[in-house]
């Protein structure tokens, strides 16, 4: 029985990067089409990843590969935990750790780009972590469960009661997936003043590990989104709509600066989420 239970997370750990990679591929294709280009094949991210694994490992120091691996591990563990139907609060801590490793990895090298990128990464964590915890709180408020399995089984369209929260979650996704509007975004086309922020100093296989971890994170966040409409077709629609929204936001707006993000999102976003929560309570 225990073994049977392990099947689900194992499958999730394997399927999540495939899913994340596909999303990245579709994103790139649609973006290209929106920009009037033909665009790369949908499988492009997989080619990129595989190629990166085959490049010469050029680590800046001993710690860098370790942190990259830990980041990947943390991201994969979060996905497995959620698939297991684990506690959402534990998940919250897992994600925080994951980001921590990314930041550590970026700040253990001497490059100023990478360090400044790490600083911004921390700041952005400050922005979205409160929202994430409020989202989990709202889920608990609605369903009375902290564990993902319970929430899922309870079913129902959480979205109906929590539209504002979902909006916040969407903005978190925009930040988290390094889309826009923020200038430390690391989408393949963005050429920012920090080159590629936290990713600047990674190369070859280590970059591939970070990239893979990133796909896990994508999958994870979309899985959290799916909890808002707990039925198979419902969550599929929700996730698809969310991804489409992300791509459009990315293409319709320039990336704004992190100062703008701090000023405009840091307070309002949790505020909005809180508002939704209060509304739920009364």
């Amino acid at each position: 029985m225990n073994l049977a239970k392990l099947w689900v997370p194992a499958a999730a750990v394997i399927a999540a990067p495939v899913f994340g990679g596909l999303i990245a591929g579709i994103d790139r294709k649609i973006s290209a089409r929106l920009q009037g280009r033909y665009g790369p094949p949908i499988l492009q991210p997989f080619y990129d990843l595989y190629k990166l694994f085959g490049k010469d490992p050029l680590a800046v120091n001993r710690w860098q590969p370790f942190f990259a691996a830990m980041y990947l591990f943390g991201a994969a563990a979060s996905v497995a935990w959620l698939a297991l139907g684990g506690d959402l609060l534990v998940l919250f801590f897992l994600t925080t750790f994951t980001v921590g490793f990314l930041v550590l990895g970026a700040s253990c090298v001497p490059s100023p780009f990478s360090r400044a990128g790490a600083g911004r990464e921390l700041l952005q964590a400050l922005v979205y972590e409160p929202v994430l915890i409020l989202v989990f709180a709202a889920i608990f408020q609605q369903t009375g469960r902290w564990d993902a399995a319970g929430v899922w089984r309870q079913g129902g369209v959480l979205l109906a009661q929590t539209p504002l929260l979902y909006l916040c979650l969407f903005l978190v996704l925009v930040i988290k997936l390094r889309k826009s509007p923020f200038d430390f975004s690391a989408s393949p086309h963005a050429h920012q003043e920090l080159v590629r922020g936290v990713l600047t100093e990674y190369s070859g296989p280590f970059l591939a590990m970070v990239e893979l971890g990133h796909w896990y994170e994508t999958a994870l966040l979309l899985m959290i989104c799916a909890l808002f409409w707990s039925s198979v077709p419902g969550s599929a629609i929700l996730v698809a709509a969310t991804v489409a929204g992300l791509i459009f936001v990315d293409n319709l707006f320039p990336r704004l600066t992190w100062r703008w993000m701090m000023a405009r999102i840091w307070l309002p976003l949790p505020g909005l989420a809180l508002l939704n929560l209060i509304w739920l309570m009364v």
Binding site: S31, L34, Q35, G36, R37, S180, P181, D183, S185, H189, A190, H191, Q192, N251, L252, F253, P254, R255
Partner: peptide, 16 residues
């Protein structure tokens, strides 16, 4: 200029 803002789609349109 558009690219420096991180606005790739505008960059592409202008180059078109």
């Amino acid at each position: 200029f558009a690219e420096a803002m991180g606005f790739e789609s505008l960059f592409m349109q202008i180059f078109r």
